[in-house]
């Protein structure tokens, strides 16, 4: 009995994961036997995560979508249970009909237009510089660039806040003594000031992903290119960049998702400037609707809109890069 069981199991991985070598099995024999044997084990391994994922990821999303389709009204004089009525897309219409929410969406798009290219270009540039043959102490630089990733976004925003006001900022003090008066927290420059905080925090992390991809490139490729007379510059553009393209796409998608969640930085900088309103980003607006305006249904619609925007941008971007050239992932 135990022997046939073992034999059944031996065949399975060959068919399941490496169909190219070994004797190909018919799907029926390949699947039926091992499944029967390991079903309990698979359940024990998969179920805990699946249950937690369902409870803390799927359920809130379902709840939010459901909530966004209803409206809660206090009945009568506010006594008794509030009444829930199905309103379909009324909350979405209300969100999009609200001028300040539309403004916050526009602001978020403007911010993404600044932040995403800035982040990707910086991360790629830093990774290529550290990877270049001319770099001294590449390990030291790698650690230094990565350090801000460990500083929470809230604390990063607090620190940069001090560096953005003339009373405490050494940079503004030096510039001012040179006759240049800057105010990063002005309405005109506030988005750049926020973009800088996000760049500071995450550029090193993204750079690390790219460096790992660069390290995986076989060195023979560079040797061959050098023998063919390629310059360092040509190697960078013609070999390194195309080879790390999938990683560049990965960090771009992560940056898009992260960018659209903008919440903490404006929240922390708000007391320092009049350029940031309480509904400055869609997430701030949703938070306020939920916890100070007491309208969680509208908040849910706003949150879902931000998520849809994130999906649309991520998949749009992936389609765009996958159409040009081969599929990335």
């Amino acid at each position: 009995m135990s022997q046939t069981r073992a034999a059944g199991r031996i065949e399975r991985p060959a068919a399941a994961s490496t169909p190219s070598h070994g004797t190909p099995l018919t799907p029926a024999t390949a699947r039926a036997k091992p499944l029967r044997h390991s079903r309990g084990a698979v359940l024990v391994m998969v179920a805990p995560f699946a249950v937690m994922f369902a409870a803390f990821f799927i359920a809130p999303i379902v709840y939010a979508i459901n909530d966004s389709l209803f409206s809660t009204k206090a009945s009568g004089l506010g006594f008794g249970a509030p009444e829930k009525t199905f309103v379909l897309f009324d909350n979405y219409a209300a969100a999009l009909g609200n001028a300040s929410f539309r403004e916050s969406l526009g602001r978020l798009l403007a911010f993404a237009a600044i932040e995403v290219p800035l982040m990707v270009v910086t991360a790629v540039a830093l990774a290529l510089l550290i990877d270049s043959a001319s770099a001294r102490l590449p390990r030291l630089f790698r650690v230094v660039f990565f350090i801000p990733y460990g500083v929470p976004g809230v604390i990063a925003a607090l620190l940069w806040g001090f560096l953005y006001i003339p009373a405490t900022s050494p940079i503004l003090q030096i510039l001012s003594s040179l006759g240049i008066d800057l105010n990063p927290l002005d309405t005109d420059s506030i988005l750049f000031a926020i973009a800088n905080i996000a760049l500071w925090g995450f550029a090193g992390y993204n750079m690390l992903i790219l460096i790992a991809a660069l390290n995986a490139v076989p060195s023979e490729l560079y040797e061959a290119a050098k023998i063919d007379g390629a310059s360092e510059w040509a190697i960078t553009w013609r070999i390194k960049l195309p080879l790390v393209r999938p990683s560049v796409i990965l960090i771009t998608v992560f940056t898009i998702i992260g960018t659209l969640q903008l919440f903490v930085e404006p929240l922390v900088l708000r007391p320092l400037t009049t350029a940031i309103s309480s509904d400055y980003t869609p997430n701030l607006a949703a938070y306020n609707q939920s916890f100070s305006q007491g309208n969680p249904n509208l908040a849910a619609a706003m949150a879902v809109l931000v998520a849809l925007l994130g999906f649309a941008f991520s998949f749009g971007f992936l389609r765009l890069v996958n159409r040009r050239g081969d599929r990335a992932w």
Partner: peptide, 8 residues
Amino acid sequence: PATVIALP
């Protein structure tokens, strides 16, 4: 986005 999850 984490924000979509945290509120609900």
